[in-house]
Amino acid sequence: MPDGSVRKSVTVHAPIEKAFTVFTQGMDSWWPRSHKIGQGQLKEAVLEGREGGRWYEIDADGSECEWGRVLTWKPPTLLVLAWQIDAAWRFDPQLITEVEIRFAPEGPHRTRVELEHRDLDRFGEAQDEVRAAFDSPGGWPGLLDAFAQAAAA
């Protein structure tokens, strides 16, 4: 996309409060074990529920690998995360792209979840490759599908 973003959305069969809670506090219930940057086996995906909170993995050996942090925390309607993983899938504290997730009720038991991963131009020469990865079935589309299934359960 010319603006350097990947946009995806999903309708979740859950009330907005539950959708937000499953996406944030329940991230470990739907985050794939293959989506990690540490050397060990992924034990837990963690998102700390507050502005400035950490977003990271805990591996089976107890080591932690940073993914980013919480930039905006407005339950149950808005979450903005700093994605600080570079094109080689390593944490880079100097790199910040933003993942904005908006939650909008579509009735008492349905929620529209819209995700935008923006500022992908900050990946420089790797931006097209990274955008393709985020846009692929193993990227945000698959992650949102896994989230929607967990939220509906």
Rank of each mutant, 00 (worst) to 15 (best):
M1K: 09
D3M: 05
G4C: 05
S5C: 03
S5I: 05
V6N: 01
R7M: 06
K8Q: 14
S9M: 04
S9C: 03
V10S: 02
V10I: 08
T11Q: 06
T11A: 04
V12I: 00
H13R: 12
I16D: 07
E17G: 08
A19K: 00
A19D: 07
F20H: 07
F20M: 07
T21V: 06
T21K: 07
T21D: 15
F23K: 04
T24N: 08
Q25F: 04
G26Q: 09
G26D: 10
M27D: 04
S29G: 10
W30I: 14
W31L: 11
W31S: 09
S34V: 10
S34F: 09
H35I: 09
K36R: 15
I37D: 10
G38R: 00
A45I: 00
V46C: 12
L47E: 02
E48G: 02
G49P: 06
R50K: 14
G53L: 08
R54D: 09
W55R: 03
W55H: 13
E57V: 08
I58E: 12
D59S: 11
A60F: 08
G62A: 15
G62Y: 15
E64S: 13
W67Q: 07
G68P: 08
G68V: 15
L71K: 13
W73H: 03
K74Q: 13
K74V: 12
K74G: 05
K74N: 07
L78C: 13
L79D: 01
L79F: 01
L79Q: 01
V80L: 08
A82T: 14
Q84G: 08
I85R: 02
A87I: 11
A87V: 11
A88K: 15
A88R: 15
W89C: 06
R90E: 09
R90H: 13
Q94M: 11
I96E: 10
I96N: 04
T97C: 12
E98R: 15
E100I: 11
I101S: 07
F103H: 14
F103Q: 15
P105Y: 00
P105F: 00
H109M: 05
T111V: 08
R112I: 01
R112M: 14
R112Q: 15
E114C: 05
L115F: 05
E116C: 13
E116D: 12
E116T: 15
R118E: 09
L120T: 09
R122Q: 08
F123L: 06
F123E: 00
E125Y: 02
A126M: 06
A126H: 12
A126I: 05
D128A: 08
E129T: 04
E129C: 02
E129I: 04
V130M: 06
V130I: 05
R131Y: 03
R131L: 06
R131N: 02
A132V: 03
A132P: 02
A132L: 05
F134Y: 14
F134I: 06
D135N: 13
D135I: 03
S136V: 02
P137I: 01
P137T: 01
G138L: 08
P141K: 07
P141L: 04
G142V: 03
L143E: 05
L143K: 00
D145K: 00
A146S: 12
F147S: 03
F147V: 01
A148Y: 01
A148E: 15
A150T: 09
A150C: 11
